[in-house]
Simulated scan of single mutants.
Amino acid sequence: MPMVTVSISPLQAADIRQAVDDGSYASSSEVVREALRLWDTARKMGAPIEGCDGAVANGRCVADMFADHEAERRSA
């Protein structure tokens, strides 16, 4: 699998570590892969990538989609 190096904020790194530590994900790579899948889905749907401030396509943005996804994961 190709490797890519990216920079993330300390808060993002802590959130990823927390998701792995609490058992939500098996590894940090799994967290990032899922985030990229959600981003790709949002991009293909035309949802704004930057967030939910201002008007958004179909009333949805990436943050909304991610919140829905996380709620579904927690209820399963």
Rank of each mutant, 00 (worst) to 15 (best):
V56S: 05
A26D: 14
V31W: 06
I16W: 12
S24D: 02
P2Q: 14
G23P: 01
K44Y: 11
V6E: 06
E50A: 15
D15H: 09
S9C: 10
E50L: 13
F66T: 02
V31E: 04
E30C: 07
A63S: 13
R43S: 05
A63C: 10
R73H: 08
S7Y: 11
T5V: 06
T41G: 01
P10H: 15
G59I: 03
A42M: 07
V31A: 04
G59H: 03
T41V: 07
A13R: 14
R74L: 11
D40A: 14
L38M: 05
E30D: 14
A57T: 12
D40P: 00
M1N: 12
G54H: 04
A55V: 15
A71V: 03
A47D: 07
A47T: 01
T5K: 06
E72F: 04
A35H: 02
C61H: 07
R73F: 04
W39C: 00
W39G: 10
A71G: 01
K44S: 14
T41N: 02
E72R: 13
A26P: 00
R37G: 03
S28Q: 09
S9E: 05
D22E: 03
I8M: 12
V62L: 15
A55S: 13
E34Y: 00
I49R: 08
D53W: 10
D21M: 08
I49W: 01
V4M: 09
R17A: 15
E34N: 02
R33D: 12
E34L: 00
